[in-house]
Amino acid sequence: MSKSSKPCPICKRPRTEEFTPFCSSRCKDRDLAKWFGDGYALPGRPAAPEEIAGEIIREERD
């Protein structure tokens, strides 16, 4: 591994090729759990249920 490679985004240890961009299966699973648990979010206002329903209807028509 080169010195310029970024560390694991969860624990900051060196990445491994097998689990890139993480260092281990544990960190990979922790990241996935954070996505499932709403630990990550995009800035912006919450979408109204009507907007979500409208998007679903539009996608089904296409």
Rank of each mutant, 00 (worst) to 15 (best):
P9A: 03
D29N: 13
K6F: 03
I56A: 06
T16Y: 04
T16P: 04
W35E: 15
K28V: 04
P49S: 01
E18G: 01
K28T: 08
C27S: 02
A53Q: 10
G44I: 01
L32V: 07
S25W: 10
C8I: 01
A53Y: 07
A41M: 06
T20H: 11
R26I: 14
A53N: 13
P9T: 10
S24Q: 14
K3I: 03
F19W: 15
I10E: 04
K3D: 13
S2M: 03
E18I: 03
L32P: 05
C11D: 08
E17D: 13
M1V: 02
G54T: 04
A41Q: 07
R30G: 09
Y40K: 07
R58E: 14
R58I: 03
P14E: 12
F22W: 15
R30F: 07
A48D: 04
W35G: 08
E51Q: 15
F36I: 13
I10V: 15
S5Q: 10
I52T: 11
K28G: 03
I57F: 12
C11Q: 14
K6S: 10
G37A: 04
S25C: 13
E50W: 06
K3F: 01
S5A: 06
R45F: 01
L42E: 03
S4R: 04
F19Y: 15
K28F: 02
S5T: 08
E18S: 05
G37S: 09
R15Y: 01
E51A: 05
I52E: 12
R26S: 12
K34N: 10
M1E: 06
S2F: 00
D38K: 03
K3G: 02
E55H: 02
I56F: 11
A47D: 06
E17Y: 06
P49Q: 00
E60A: 15
L42Q: 04
D29A: 12
P7W: 03
R45W: 01
A41T: 09
P21A: 13
F36T: 11
A48G: 00
A48S: 00
R15L: 04
Y40H: 13
R61M: 09
R13F: 06
R58G: 01
G44Q: 05
S4D: 07
T16A: 07
G54P: 02
K12H: 13
P14C: 05
I52L: 07
S4K: 02
R26C: 07
A47T: 05
K28D: 12
R13L: 13
A41D: 04
P43N: 09
D29S: 12
R30N: 11
E55K: 04
I52Q: 06
S2A: 05
L32I: 15
R45V: 06
R26H: 12
F19K: 12
S24E: 14
W35F: 15
D29H: 09
E59W: 12
